[in-house]
Design a protein around this nucleic acid. Sequence first.
DNA 1: AAATGAACTTAGTAATTCTCAT
DNA 2: ATGAGAATTACTAAGTTCATTT
Length: 746
Amino acid sequence: MTQTPYKCIVMGREKCVEGEVKAKSRKLKKLDGGESSGDFGDLIKHSTKPMKFTEEANNEKSQKKVKTPKAEIQQVSICSDALKEETMEAFSTKKKSLKRKRVKDEPRDGSSHSVSPRLKRKTDESEEETRERHSKKRIEKSIKKEEEHHPLPKKAKRTKEEIEEAKLLKIQKKEEEEKSRWRWWEEEKYEDGVKWKSLEHNGPYFPPEYQPLPDDVHFYYDGKKMKLSAAAEEVALFFAQMLDHEYTTKKVFRENFFKDWRKEMSPEERSVIQDLDKCDFSKIHAMHKAKVEARKNLTKEEKQTLKEANQKIVEEFGYCLLDHHKERIGNFKIEPPGLFRGRGEHPKQGMLKKRIQPEEVIINCSKDARVPDPPPGHRWKEVRHDNTVTWLASWTENIQSSIKYIMLNANSKLKGEKDWEKYEIARKLKSCVDDIRNTYMRDLKSKEMVTRQRAVALYFIDELALRAGNEKEEGETADTVGCCSLRVEHITLHEQLDGNQCVVEFDFLGKDSIRYYNKVPVISKVFKSLKRFMDNKEPGDELFDRLNTSLLNKHLSSLMPGLTAKVFRTYNASITLQQQLKELSNKSDNVAEKLLSYNRANRAVAILCNHQRAPPKTFEQSMANLQAKIDARKEQLALAKSELKQAKKEAKDKGSSDGKLQAVVERKKAAVKRCEEQLLKMEVQATDREENKQIALGTSKLNYLDPRISVAWCKNMDVPIEKIYNKTQREKFAWAIDMTEADFEF
DNA sequence: AAATGAACTTAGTAATTCTCAT
DNA sequence: ATGAGAATTACTAAGTTCATTT
């Protein structure tokens, strides 16, 4: 079955308007439930984990590299030439000499507890050395090349030296980073379930204590000034700060807030404050706004000071040592208290999210590591040493009583390896997707209702990239659905629509209450089945009443180890990108056009996955601005053209041998060409932006597209990787950038 | 076999920082 | 130098999945 997965998703799609799709009589109870518990659990475990990247007959180069014994790699010292090349033409198509270059930065050195309490940057010692080692000459050369890449239209306000110096520093830093990067993808994997052997960190960072309001700022109740207790005042401030936000106008939000606020009040306050409408937060609100404004108007120096203070916190709490490598922590701050901001029609919006105390926090680190100090006067809830999980600290949040975790940054080994594994599973699906499609096509005809429902659900998941759709507890969260939890009210069947047969119209709120609206022609088998499923059901009844995600996933994992519903999203996203890139991009295009093609391919995926965004507030304006610039450039072009014509004419009249006039012609020609190029670039940009109005590319780029596809494309197309991935993204995908050759195929 | 718990990925928005034209 | 607008980063909510408990 050939598939262009994004094909059907072309019709109207809009950001959901609040309350647009309303739940009616929801009946979460199954009519019947037959979940057979085939025991695939073990099977999966064994077949996916240990062999995951090596078992395949697949002989990607990238995979071979995984097996490279690390000892070999680590011994070789830095060759500064190789290093230079790396910095300069990071992503030329030629082979990298890089592999050897690995710096064995920090031997698991015997001084086993060199793991310093403050997690001192382990490369500190070598920094000096490095700086010296890299001769000045070499660096200057680098700069020159750098500039060729990004020609600076510098109107040297500062002295040349200063600029040079800044550049120099930047380059040094870059090299430093490159050098200290942990090339974990070249190492052996750990055995099943083990996530690390050693883990040390300084614990989470706690938000500052509440600072009571200044004496001249007051809260008023029923027109009367009222001094609140600290606890009540803090919560009042949360609300006051949000007064400009739509949230504070919503009934549910206000009610939840008021209820929780009253819990924080003293008995006296509670007896007085009975009605939120009589509360006047305007002075507190004004103070807050003034504060924000004041912060904006700080002098450069003051801002710098703040920044440095912040930096210090990051230094202390933002990193950990994982297997003796310094890794960045993704979210090292305990979430501060505030009012819960659920998305969509969340029944708990406005509730008070409480301040977390150290006594509620569990610390996870290795046995031999220094246990982080709790804030003075406090103790941890628990310290455990569980190396089968990746989190450093956790606590239970009071709104949904779910657990929150402190985990590593996306550029860490732990996250990167998992990401890589995810794409490997998706590629495995590629090799058996035809069989699986045949299977569910066959299952559509099954006698068993469960099987047919499963087949239709799978058809949707595969064709439309719907999410699995777990059941949710009613009243606990916003009413959103995915595939398995679709209700009758979410689809409309059309025998005939816009010249198509058998069209299914979807209209529901998905994750984050983003509306999914789509009209899809389906095969008649699916159409007929859907009709059957809807027989005798109320709009609020479940469409797939015999099915749930666990049943579906159990089935999937029997078809292929490691296969779950979400793998289809990853697979279809990545394969679409690859196809679209092949289709849309031309080697002969210039870089701007190539990038447009890339973005279009990316966009096809974002549309497939329904990744939307609110159109930027300034969208219309900025579009108009760009158009104005284009018009201006057009005029300039016309002028340049006529000048060229004029010059040509003169040259002809005076005899073409006149060297001077000939030179003028050449100059004008060049001007016209330059103008045309700039115009084209802007027009391309305008197209790109317009097409992107309500579509968010970031999510798919970060979570669904195998980075190796993009890296290979860049190499094939001679596009520098920096055009596709920014710094953070390059760090996240370092493994892919490093290991991927031009011939990679997903 | 259903509910609950735990761990981890995916998601959009808000805040902050950067960049470029003026 | 400045300020608008773009780009990036921070934040944390909302999913999926698998394991455990009831």
